[in-house]
């Protein structure tokens, strides 16, 4: 069925956004990206290493995937704004996955710095996709300052703990008028399916694929899970009941 994922006016047929972090090699990453069917993938910005060989950008371009730079590693709004501007200059895109984290231990977003950075970047004509806490109020504030999506975490980055507060994700989905992308915390395929069943527009994940025993196989699992969860959401699940309801006719 035709059910495009539209973000900032751009349509994608895949609702799986795959990050490139954590893959053991560019070759493994390439095969996982292909198996995931993703059309949008994240990269980080770092100082040029003269000794490095092979470019993740070449690989992404060869697959025809849109690149989404992030501001990973930034602790303040000022740092994140600076990195976003560098990314725009390097990659020629005004899209940014905005990350402003509070500490290395939890990698949880710092809400005050995040909102400040989002406001500055929107004013500078960026398409801002903020990685945020699973806080419906913060999500609303991010939307109000002009973010093109909100991307609440299911659990801390790389934890694989799944969606710890499904109720909050539902609250965010209910009130948002921009796409809600479940970002971070996915451990396995069922987590991705649940995110989509809760009404998220897309799922962003990296670790659960790139650090799986078989990244290519897990990427395919995630592709199917996201697609299945989306179909289930559109189909409308049956209500939960306390007691049985016969599925065969009682009479005859």
């Amino acid at each position: 069925m035709d059910d495009p994922f539209i973000i900032a006016g751009e349509a994608f047929s895949s609702r799986l956004i795959m990050g490139t972090g954590g893959a053991p090699s560019l070759d493994v990453l390439d095969r996982a990206l292909a198996a995931s069917g993703t059309e949008l993938t994240t990269v980080a910005m770092r100082r040029v290493d003269p000794a490095s060989t092979g470019s993740v950008l070449d690989l992404i371009a060869a697959r025809g995937i849109k690149v989404l730079p992030n501001t990973a590693g930034c602790f303040t709004a000022a740092e994140a704004v600076r990195v976003a501007r560098m990314a725009r200059a390097a990659l020629g895109t005004n899209w940014v996955k905005l990350e402003v984290i509070a500490d290395e231990h939890t990698l949880l977003p710092d809400p005050v710095e995040l909102l400040d950075a989002a406001e500055q970047l929107v004013a500078d004509n960026f398409t801002v996709l903020p990685y945020t806490n699973d806080d419906p109020v913060l999500a609303r504030r991010l939307e109000q300052v002009g973010c093109a999506a909100v991307m609440p975490l299911g659990a801390p980055i790389g934890s694989g703990l799944g969606i710890r507060n499904q109720h909050n994700i539902e609250l965010i989905v209910e009130s948002a008028t921009v796409p809600v992308v479940l970002d971070a915390g996915i451990g396995t395929a069922s987590d991705a399916a649940i995110a989509m069943e809760l009404g998220c527009a897309a799922v962003l994940l990296a670790t659960s694929v790139t650090r799986a025993r078989d990244p290519e196989l897990m990427a395919e699992a995630m592709r199917l899970a996201v697609a299945s969860g989306r179909l289930a959401f559109l189909a409308g699940r049956v209500p939960r009941r306390r007691y049985a309801r016969a599925s065969s006719p009682p009479a005859g």
Binding site: G19, T20, G22, L29, V43, R46, S55, A72, E99
Partner: peptide, 10 residues
């Protein structure tokens, strides 16, 4: 001078 490029991440 800072010179940055894209690497795997996120």
């Amino acid at each position: 001078v800072e010179v940055l490029t894209a690497v795997q991440g996120g």
